[in-house]
Design a protein around this nucleic acid. Structure first.
Lengths: 138, 138
DNA sequence: TTGCGTGCAAAGGTTTTGCATGGCA
DNA sequence: TGCCATGCAAAACCTTTGCACGCAA
């Protein structure tokens, strides 16, 4: 993980602090902008995008391109978290993104590696479908 | 599968024909536009998007929001194809999207349904990682 | 004739870039 | 002081919408 030279600016601290405070939840760039606008601490879009880009590239946050209209999602990576067993389930009905701890992820990774000569990056898997609530409410 | 009333226009025939001719490969809206521009049969963006939207909604093509810059991908669905065992592997290095027939998909679906109360839509799964060629060329 | 199809222009939304200014070290 | 960071404005993208006209049935 390359630590690019970073100045300690108000904005950097605010953005990183906010993402960390979400404890793993996902946010879009727009949501971050909105959050700081509400706090009367407006931070320019540009700055937010540049920090997200930097944080993504040095591994502090992950970027998800979920199916949808509202742009990419970003998520802080807690290093103590066991990422190898972390699965994402996005409901196509209500749009909610759920997390699931799942041993099967390791099996998938091994299988795809053995059978398909492809090294899966388990951090970016998003499965689409329908969540329990939406299934029951039909 | 609802068959909405469709007129047989040149454009509709051309677009559908082109997508079918790709035998399951993925194209973006931009690639389709470009293809017809080269053939000196320019078709308006609007028309292409509207047909892709229609085809997606009536189930003739599938839409993938892959991670990347170039927008959504569309793929014709051959009904004789066994979709339940069709896996997508997108290489993060070279960007190529590979297809793999894979029995494991059924297991994943069953597991997530049993353990996580979530009905996976197996048609939209995209796994990210590194393909064989890119792993070897490092 | 009727109503869907077409496509230009323009709008909408997200993300990036140019550039002058501001601020950390 | 030397760089990097900031943020406005504007551009770059992808996609959708308004609207007038064209064309299949």
């Amino acid at each position: 993980m390359k630590r690019s030279s970073n100045y300690n600016t108000k904005q950097r601290e605010a953005i990183l602090g906010y993402i960390i405070s979400l404890s793993g939840a996902h946010v879009t760039a727009a949501q971050i902008t909105e959050h700081f606008a509400k706090e009367s601490v407006p931070i320019g879009r540009t700055t937010i995008y540049r920090h997200l880009d930097k944080l993504t590239r040095n591994g502090a946050v992950r970027r998800y391109t979920t199916d949808g209209i509202s742009g990419a999602c970003y998520q802080y990576i807690n290093n103590s978290e066991n990422c190898d067993t972390h699965l994402h389930l996005k409901c196509e009905s209500c749009g909610e993104l759920k997390h699931a701890e799942c041993e099967m992820l390791r099996q998938i990774k091994r299988h795809v590696s053995d059978q398909h000569s492809f090294e899966v990056n388990p951090l970016k898997i998003v499965l689409y479908g329908k969540c329990e609530e939406c299934l029951n409410s039909v």
